[in-house]
Amino acid sequence: MSDFIVFKDVSKFYGEVLGVNRVDLHIPPGITSLVGPNGSGKTTLMNLMTGLVHPGSGTITVRGLSPFQPEKLMRILGYATQYDAAPRGVTGYDFVVAGLLLYGYAPGEAERRARQAIETVSMTQAADRKVAAYSKGMRQRIRLAQAIAHEPSVLVLDEPLNGLDPLVRAETIALFRNYAAEGRHVILSSHVLQEVDVFSDQVILIANGMIVAEGEIKNVREEIHEHPSQFLLHCQNPSRVASLLFEETHITEVKLDPEGRGVLVLTRHRDAFSEAVQRIALSGVEIDGVVPTDENVDALYEYLIGGGR
């Protein structure tokens, strides 16, 4: 049985609306992040690999199993979807137990596993409350508990870090790392690259239903470093700051902010830019603050889709 998740020339349309188009992927075990703006096709890819939607063309296998065989696939796969709803009126604990009963665990074993999974996501205190009364972050965690309760080899998580507080977030990331270290797949999605690039083994960048970049995170990161970043320097004397910045070799563009807040700077080297700002400030020119203005993934996609121009 293959250890990979494989997409072969997969396309999916919702009527006339494109979901994903001609996707070819070979995803090895480890943490893989699907990153893209909202509506780019991340959830469609996850739904395709879990059989919640069916491809219009192409084939998908998850560790050698077809998504058309849920009775086999779901034994090795856990999916925490983005859908908030749980069956009406159930408590978090019941929600996880119900899922385990469908796996065929005896009630006692299902309860033990449910308690363990709920503890892993730090939800023990709230386990007996109705899911409907949970906050967004708690729902996120109980879905995660349900997805990991049967200890799957493939864990698929749609925006799993959304709404989590920093402590739980760190614990959740540690959980992903443990899973990956055991040779399992952890596939997660995010629309913020910076959120996932520190712990992902590989990243898949997707935009408009197409794979824009794919590979080990260090390679993609290098590509990202080539991407010029834009900053806004809040200052009292924009013309003076602009002239000083022009002397720096890594600065590709400097212009006065049309709204009069300061200077807009485009640089290919963030660290060098940071040092330059420090030097200017120490020379006595007043700088009130530095704000990145394009630190969203959309800007990166525009860059990647545009071929690195």
């Binding site: 879990t50 059989g51 919640l52 849920p70 009775e71 086999k72 696939l73 779901m74 034994r75 999916y79 979807t81 859908y83 908030d84 709803a85 749980a86 069956p87 009406r88 899922g99 469908l102 796996y103 065929g104």
Partner: peptide, 17 residues
């Protein structure tokens, strides 16, 4: 309508079952 059908579809159960 309740957006909860995926709960069942993600169980290791044949759809006919």
């Amino acid at each position: 309508l309740d957006k909860s059908l995926h709960f069942w579809f993600l169980a290791p159960v044949r759809r006919e079952i």
